[in-house]
């Protein structure tokens, strides 16, 4: 399936927002809370900002920033990609 995947999110997390050594990003992180991955609200805001620019999808509204897990974040991005006609 095309669209925005968890691996795409992993790439942005690794390259743009940073990951602590104690976090296994390659693991099953879909349902792990951002907080447990060392991501506070500002980190999620930065994540949304990076994805918005790279993927051309508006994400700075509240639902994207309220995503508590990478899985929820990916789902929200894909919903918006669909709406954008991708």
């Amino acid at each position: 399936m095309s669209g925005f995947t968890l691996d795409d999110l992993r790439t942005v997390m690794r390259e743009c927002v940073g990951v602590d050594e104690s976090v296994d990003l390659a693991g099953d992180i879909g349902d792990v809370a951002f907080a447990e991955l060392g991501y506070d609200s500002l980190a999620v805001l930065e994540l949304a900002s990076q994805v918005q620019r790279t993927w051309g999808v508006p994400l700075t509204d509240t639902p994207a920033l309220e995503a508590r897990t990478p899985g929820a974040f990916v789902a929200y991005v894909n919903d918006n990609l669909t709406e954008a006609g991708r």
Partner: peptide, 8 residues
């Protein structure tokens, strides 16, 4: 430094 600290 820890990976999370560098970009911020």
């Amino acid at each position: 430094l820890p990976g999370r600290l560098v970009p911020q």
